[in-house]
């Protein structure tokens, strides 16, 4: 599947990208990450030369919550369980990353320190993996008990979304709230109905991946621990998109960035800054010139093999 990841679109470059891809027809768009502002997509439509068809996933989601109160209540319970799971994971993660940091700060470099560091990072990787499995299990149990295709309202929306996607020349996914995007795209089964190229940026790019990594080093409370949120649509594997990387990450802190890159290796941590365009095909391959975090914690540019 052809996937194009873009940097944030404050200065829109979408029109030029679409023209370069030689796409013809209507574009399905997902602006669910904007939540209440989902319908405010006039500028996006302009960029697509008036050919946008908004899938309105957020509006559909609200409709499900309103018209299927039983499912809505179950979904709220699921959210509570997931919040608990995330909280416990973050507690453990904090300790794990502190151990990594303490080892990094310890004395001179040497084989013992490098070995200890590798093991400390490995412990965090194990924790990340266990967390993903736990979240997947919670989701699996939920969907087992509440099969979406058996819920009339959801099934109707799924069908409508699939119909719109069938006729689309491409799918365009904007940024916003990545959790809302992932939830809505899963619920309405976007991945299964998709057979067209995808253009996505910011939270939209993150939602396409197999592991959604949240990060913010410049919050009110200081640098937070990058954390796994869960699985995205898995249309794009082996890539951790980093939108607004220079604004959100302490890129000058090589030790911190090194741990970031090592945690998620062999996936590539790809910087998506304003003006970035990365053409990929879903298996994580990235073109020459792509800017990534390397395991030494520096920003590197991919070169020809």
């Amino acid at each position: 599947m052809r996937i194009v990841l873009l940097g944030p679109q404050r200065t829109p470059a979408l029109n030029a990208v679409v023209r370069s891809m030689d796409l013809d027809g209507r574009f399905a768009t997902i602006t669910a990450g904007w939540q209440e502002r989902e319908p405010d997509d006039g500028e996006l439509d302009d960029q697509l030369d008036g050919n946008a068809v908004n899938l309105s996933l957020y509006t559909r989601w609200l409709d499900v919550l309103e018209r299927d109160p039983e499912f809505a209540a179950a979904e709220r319970r699921l959210r509570t369980v997931l919040d608990d799971v995330q909280e416990v994971y973050l507690l453990r993660l904090d300790h794990g990353l502190r151990a990594v940091c303490d080892v990094q700060l310890r004395g001179d470099a040497g084989p013992l320190k490098e070995e200890a560091l590798t093991e400390a990072v490995e412990a965090v990787r194990t924790l990340d993996e266990q967390h993903l499995q736990r979240i997947s299990a919670v989701h699996a149990e939920f969907y087992d008990r509440w099969p979406p295709h058996d819920r009339t309202v959801i099934a109707q929306h799924r069908e409508a979304v699939a119909r719109l996607l069938r006729d689309a020349a491409a799918l365009v996914v904007t940024g916003g709230h990545v959790g809302v995007l992932v939830t809505a795209m899963h619920l309405f089964n976007v991945a299964a109905a998709l057979d067209a190229p995808v253009i996505a940026w910011s939270a939209g790019a993150m939602a396409l991946t197999d592991r959604v990594v949240l990060f913010h080093d410049r919050s009110v409370q200081g640098a937070g621990n990058p954390e796994l949120y869960g699985r995205g649509l898995s249309l794009l594997r082996g890539v951790v998109p980093l939108p607004h990387a220079s604004g959100r990450l302490l890129l000058d802190d090589a030790q911190r960035m090194s741990v970031f890159a090592r945690r998620f290796a062999p996936a590539r941590c790809v910087l998506l800054e304003a003006g970035t365009r990365v053409d990929t095909d879903g298996d994580g391959s990235c073109p020459v010139g792509t800017r990534v975090l390397d395991v030494d914690g520096r920003v590197a540019v991919l070169e020809a093999a």
Partner: peptide, 9 residues
């Protein structure tokens, strides 16, 4: 904490 970590515009 607010949802800042979830927002990527």
């Amino acid at each position: 904490p607010g949802p800042q970590k979830y927002y990527y515009e």
